[in-house]
Every structure is written in C-alpha cells, then in structure tokens.
Design a protein around this nucleic acid. Structure first.
Lengths: 253, 253
DNA sequence: ACAAAAGTGTTTTCTATACACCCATGG
DNA sequence: CCATGGGTGTATAGAAAACACTTTTGT
C-alpha cells in the first residue's frame, strides 16, 4: 500500500511550506466526449483510489493563478476557462481516518492532518486537447464519465455534485464553447446542452433558438464518415457569442 | 489619528494567532429600510474611514460558522441568512500604503501585512431587528444607503458591487423574506424587488405574478397610519415560499 | 433500398407586457 | 373633499412548446 518514496513526501512538504496553510484548491475539470460529461480524476500512488486534481496557493500567488497553474500541470493546456463555484469550509469535511486508510499516506502526525478549507473551481475544457498527466502523488490521470463515478476520496463526490449544480444554475452565463472543438455539428451542441441539463430538448426548437440567437456561424464543411446524412459544421461567432453569454441570454429552461 | 490602545492591538494579535492566516471573511449585510437597500459599515477607531465588517476563521471552525459568529457580534441577531458569493483571491487586492495611511494602523511590520484571501459572504437581515455594534477596532457601526456609499477602505466598494451583482443574478433562489418584517404590504415587497433589480416593475403585473406563485398569505390586518388607503398586510407562506425559492421560480426578468 | 440521423415550419399555449380607472384613507 | 397611494382586469405581443415529415448518406 504505502509505496510513497520518501523524497516525494519530502518534496511535497516543502511545497506545502511555500503555500498557504489550511487552504487548498480542488478542481473539477469538465470535458465532453461521446455524448457524456466527463471529469478528470487522479489515482493515488499504489492504490485504486481516485480523487480530484488539486493543490495549494503559494503565499504571494492569486487564487485564480494557483488554479490555472495546477490545471496546466494536469492537462497541458495553456488557456482554460475557470470558474470558482463554492468554498468548502466545514471544519470536518470527511472521515479522515477512513481517507488515510484508503490512501495509506502517513499524514496523521504531519502538517497534513490540519483541516483544510477548499476553494472549488471548475474548468470547461476541450476533451481532445487535454493530455492528462498524473502528479507526484498519483500514478494515473484519467477521464471518468460523470454517471459512472467511483467512490472518491475526501468529499470529492460531493464537490463534483456542487460543481455540476453550479454549472447548471449558471448555464446561461457560462461559455460552453470551451467544451467543444473549433467546429462541431448542431446535434453535438444539442447533446451537450442535454447532458448538462439532464433532460432532452426538442431538436426543432433547439435549432430555432440557437439560430435566432446568432451565436453560431455555419461553415461550408460537413462532417462526413457517419453512415447517415452529413451534418453541417458550425463555429461560435467570436463577437456575438461572448456578448450573448455576458448578458445571460440563452436559456433552455 | 492613531489612538489605538496597545491592549486592543495585543488582543487583536492574539485573536489572529488563533485563526487561519492569509484568510479572512468579509461580510456584506444587506438591509432594506425606507425604500432603500442598505449595508452595515464600521468606522475605524479615530478615523473617518469606513469598511465592511469582517474577521478571521478559527483553526477548527467552519467558514460558515465564522461568518455567523462575526455577524452576531455586529448585529445582535441569532439567526441570519448567509450566502457565500465570491472568493477575493488576488495577490494584490488594494493599495496597502494608502490603506495604512488612512487608518493609521501600525501594520506594516506585523503579521498584518500578509496578503489575505477573503471569503465574501452576504447576509440578508431584517433592518429593524439589528442593533449595530462596533467591534474593537471601530467606534461606530451604522447603516449606509447603497447609493450613497463613501470611498471605503481596502477593496470593500468592489466587494459590495460583486455582492450586489451576485444577489441580483441569484435573486430567484434567494429568500428575500429575510429582508422584510414578519408582515409587510404588497407595495413594500414590490419596492424591495425594484430596489434590488434597479428598475421599476408594473404594480398590476407584480400583484398577478406574486399571487399566482402562492408564496404569500394575506392577513386580515391592514397597515394604518398613512394618509391614504390602508394596504393589506401579507406574510410569507412558510411552506410554499421555501419551495418556490428552492426551485428558483420567481423571476422578474 | 433501407436504416438512421439531419434538417426544417406551423400551430398552439403560455407568459410577459402594456395600459387606466375606481377605491380607501387621513388630513 | 381632496390628494395620494392602494388595488384590480383585459387585451396584445412575444416566447416557448408541441408536433411530423422529407432529405441525405453509407452500407
């Protein structure tokens, strides 16, 4: 179980010393692939236990910058859309005994046993652009479908629930574009909305509303390769889309 | 200018030692009185400079509990509706030199000069129930109308702006009831919505929508004392109102 | 030719808005 | 009796929802 090498732990403690105590960042990285919402998870070294990517804020670093830094390291992305969505500030957030047992990490007598307040951020990223990279404490970093999540470490299942609820509630203001590639088809966009909202939408009404909103530009290309009618490819209008999002106009309630 | 007595500073440092460093709480307490939104502000000892109430989180205390504790001390209220709305996590949030000059507080060489990340909470309270009480560092605690705010210390004008924007955006989910007394008239409720939204509403449509939503119970009493027609008094339906708020149904967009 | 997804218009229902008059009260 | 805010209904416009068939494509 405990095959953390001593130097890793050492490095980690040093890193913690540079950072603000009692405070951490947890990131829910949302991607969309094959009609499903996915999140990026890390598998802890030598275990079969998964958790969200996270880290600490350096003493002179802004919280947003810390989240960007953490996610750059996990995803390889330079740019990403980030949104803080909640502060997890309870004094007791999860069963510590149980967690330590599951990860076999010698934390109980170190700085690590301090309670931490966690700043919750979610990111919207383009699935195909991400190259998941584990960190020092993990030996795998992978996408998991939102509806097949395992029992995560800490309170991370709860954090994901809150992140998703936040994304849903703020959907009219969130630039969903980051979850899709440069060009995409109308049904793909519809499926994205359906997945986030957790219900189906009428295709005709969806087309109408999206086209009326003016957020899309239709390209001359079509997606071929499927055995059926080739759909047009669209891209987001770089001027109109941000304006519509800022105003929060684009609701499918 | 600097008439902080040494024992106060001493006490304050001890208090800070019990708390989490680099992290603070700032609270925007919203009240509604005479047709205006108001916020509770503190005047720093020996100065004419105002700021938001705030404080620190004890090492084993939940963030929410800290906010409740801080606001109990300022308002005398046991119960209050609190909502975290933003993390102010920039490395440089305001002009420190300027701030220290304005408050004449000997902070530059103490723990106090650390950058702080601030958790922003807003509270919705019933104006008349509050008995504003200054804290150790201030010699006044008072309501200020939102549209006549002075130039506040730190980044507190900005924090209030963000709080108000958050309240507006999340209005359908926020229990506005806390801003009103037990019973109130329909025009009072309308004025509250108008004030928060920053625009006027049509009285007839407002009546219709509110009545259709079923959130109110009309009492048999009327408010007398005005020189005009006596309006009925209403109270929030203790069952229906929370349900409507949870669902976020009640928009005046 | 067929299976399956893409693409499109019209009708209906509901919701939001605009709008004007009488009523009640205290002074 | 008058000044002022309280209280109400209806008509219209716009938005959302329901609904079905034709087109396209690879196999």
């Amino acid at each position: 179980m405990k095959n953390f090498d001593q130097t890793v732990i050492q490095y980690f403690r040093q890193e913690a010393e540079l950072s603000i105590h009692y405070l951490s960042i947890d990131c829910v990285v949302f991607g969309f692939h094959e009609g499903r919402m996915r999140v990026l998870l890390l598998r802890w070294k030598g275990t079969n236990e998964w958790s969200l990517p996270g880290g600490f804020i350096r003493k002179t670093e802004s919280a947003d910058a810390a989240a960007v830094r953490i996610l750059r390291e996990r995803t390889g992305l330079q740019q990403l859309f980030l949104q803080q969505f909640h502060i997890f500030g309870d004094a007791i957030r999860y069963d510590e005994e149980d967690t330590w047992r599951r990860i076999g990490f010698p934390v109980d007598r170190s700085k690590w046993s301090e309670r931490t307040i966690s700043l919750g951020y979610y990111a919207l990223v383009e699935y195909a652009e991400v190259t998941p990279r584990p960190d020092l404490l993990s030996d795998a970093c992978d996408w998991w479908s939102l509806d097949e999540l395992p029992n995560l470490l800490f309170d991370h299942n709860h954090i994901i629930d809150v992140a998703l609820a936040g994304l849903r509630r703020q959907l009219p203001y969130q630039p969903i574009s980051h979850l899709l590639p440069e060009t995409f088809t109308m049904p793909e966009l519809q499926r994205l909305y359906e997945t986030i909202l957790g219900r189906t939408l009428d295709a005709r009404n969806f087309y109408k509303k999206v086209q009326a909103s003016g957020i899309l530009q239709r390209t001359d290309e079509r997606r071929t390769g499927t055995p059926y009618k080739s759909p047009y490819l669209y891209r987001f209008d770089p001027v109109a889309y941000p304006a519509v999002i800022r105003g929060g106009h684009l609701s499918f309630l």
